[in-house]
């Protein structure tokens, strides 16, 4: 699942037609409460889209190459080749920043989101996309924010589509649970069988595995009477796949 997180409703208002689930987290300190509600899994992706303060040109968009927050370790999401936007360091602050460094972007949620996400998912599954809205002096209206985000919808779409591509599988099961029960395997042997099933699938040898099981069943050796018999059968399956 791709989670697209924005702090503000007016940011989310621009994000039509994107794959993934849009979540409005609330700004700054409100963000962690919203994140707690999400049950992130290792296969999920997180795309944070929002406005930022900077001395850079208003309306320009950046991918965060790093995100930092006072007193915390700097975090680095991975950069993908298909992310065509320029990169910039992002600093998350707790109060609106009036004085800004030349090359930095400032927001109020990025670090909180990255820190939360990176506890579960890889750095390549996190992307923080920030659009410069102001330099800390004059602030845009809600409509202006929506327009700013909308002006980068094409780039945002490319990133969201890449991030929502099909997940790679983590495991395979091709034997019915009753077969593994009938083999009377110990937990260790059961894990061995799981690895063998995985190998059979990725090497396109599932037919071989199922054929061996079928033959053993027809010859009456499955169900097994003991763990020792289960071990022998597991060894036969191993030999047939090696």
């Amino acid at each position: 699942m791709l989670y697209i997180l924005t702090a503000l409703k007016c940011e989310a208002a621009a994000l039509s037609g994107l794959p993934g689930k849009i979540i409005i987290t609330g700004a700054g300190g409100l963000c962690p409460d919203a994140l707690k509600e999400l049950d992130l899994t290792p296969q999920d992706k997180v795309l944070n889209i929002g406005i930022s303060g900077s001395k850079r040109e208003t309306g320009s968009a950046y991918i965060a190459s790093s995100v930092s927050m006072e007193g915390k370790k700097k975090l680095y999401p991975d950069i993908a080749l298909w992310q065509k936007l320029p990169v910039s360091e992002l600093v998350t602050v707790t109060e609106v920043k009036k004085e800004m460094s030349d090359d930095l972007l400032y927001d109020m949620e990025g670090y909180l989101i990255a820190e939360w996400a990176l506890k579960v998912i890889p750095p390549s599954s996190v992307c923080l996309l920030k659009i410069v809205s102001d330099s800390g002096k004059e602030f845009p209206s809600k409509q202006e924010i929506t327009d700013l985000v909308r002006s980068h919808l094409t780039e945002i779409k490319v990133i969201a589509e890449h991030m929502s591509l099909e997940e790679r599988p983590c495991g395979y099961t091709c034997l019915a649970e009753d077969v593994t029960e009938q083999l009377r395997l110990t937990e260790y042997m059961r894990n061995e069988l799981c690895d063998l099933m995985h190998y059979a699938r990725v090497s396109d040898k599932e037919d071989v595995l199922l054929g061996v099981i079928d033959g053993l069943r027809r010859s009456g050796r499955i169900p097994c009477k003991s763990k020792k018999e289960g071990r022998q059968i597991l060894d036969e399956i191993l030999s047939s796949l090696r």
Partner: peptide, 12 residues
């Protein structure tokens, strides 16, 4: 870093 996706990084 923890939890890096090596397959992604080989492509990027």
């Amino acid at each position: 870093r923890k939890r890096q996706d090596i397959a992604f990084q080989k492509e990027n």
